[in-house]
């Protein structure tokens, strides 16, 4: 039998939040259309390093494997992306996997992104409906505006844009592109716009939109191709208008 083709992985591991990182290398049998999650699954089945040393299976987070849930975001060959949608054929080897260190590491490639969900509370990321009971029919919407909303509503809170943003990190309070742009989404909605002022005021506070340095990294890494910088710019104008309004209404 001819020698089986393999894929070489160099994985940055870490046993716990305060442990020191180390690397382990693995060879995974190649097959067509192999993606990074599928390769990690192979390591689960045979947790043995390239040098034949038995080890523990690599820990990471995943659910849907269809690039919709946002769980499997990690840094692959230096770039933050979804592991399930990264085919090994499309990137150079050896393939380096590392956790997205903008977030606290839990173990290996698994990270704690709860800060993003907390930020969604801050920007009031919901429509204030009276209740789930029957009320009126919702207002009709301009289909073009609705299409824009649909684009932004794809955001799966994966955190690629936070990982890529130079202004997100210990040096700044910036909540990051994804949660910020969600404010724009809710302001676009006819009912959501009733609380537009509150959202814009929240973005004026520390860590809000003024912390965005317009580096444009976010839009390049967004796996859902959301035009983040366009909406950040629009929000910036809205926030400035709101600031003037606040002054005159004092």
């Amino acid at each position: 039998m001819s020698e089986q083709k393999t894929v070489h992985f160099i994985i940055e591991r870490q046993d716990g939040p305060d442990s020191k990182p180390y690397t382990e290398e693995f060879l995974v049998p190649y097959r067509p259309a192999l993606n990074v999650v599928a390769a990690l699954m192979e390591i689960q089945k045979k947790p043995v390093t390239k040098d034949g040393k038995k080890t523990t299976p690599v820990v990471w987070e995943c659910n849907c494997l269809e690039k919709v849930c946002g769980a499997c975001m990690m840094v692959i060959n230096g770039k933050a992306r979804q592991a399930c949608a990264t085919l090994v054929d499309q990137i150079p080897q050896p393939i380096r996997l590392a956790p997205a260190r903008t977030f606290p590491v839990i173990r290996d490639l698994q990270i704690d992104r709860s800060v993003m969900f907390e930020s969604l509370k801050r920007i009031r990321g919901w429509i204030d409906v009276d209740g789930s009971w029957e009320v009126n029919t919702a207002p009709i919407q301009n289909p073009y505006t609705a299409a824009t909303a649909y684009e932004i509503a794809h955001c799966m809170t994966c955190g690629c844009c936070l990982e890529a943003c130079p202004n997100v990190g210990p040096q700044s309070d910036f909540i990051g592109p994804a949660p910020t742009v969600q404010a724009y989404l809710f302001n676009l909605n006819p009912l959501g716009s009733f609380n537009k002022d509150k959202r814009l005021n929240a973005l004026m506070e520390k860590g809000g939109i003024t912390s965005c340095g317009n580096s444009q990294n976010c839009v390049q890494v967004c796996p859902k191709n959301i035009k983040l910088t366009t909406y950040l710019a629009q929000l910036n104008r809205d926030v400035n208008k709101q600031a003037l309004k606040n002054i005159f209404n004092k």
Binding site: W126, I127, V129, S132, W133, E134, V135, N136, T137, A138, I140, Q141, N142, P143, A146, A149, Y150, A153, F186, N189, L191, G192
Partner: peptide, 21 residues
């Protein structure tokens, strides 16, 4: 149909016809 109206009020970006419904 009542559930759909609820989701619509909650802001689900449903695909719309040219007249916005």
């Amino acid at each position: 149909p009542k559930l759909i109206k609820m989701f619509d009020r909650m802001g689900v970006p449903f695909t719309r016809t040219a007249e916005g419904v």
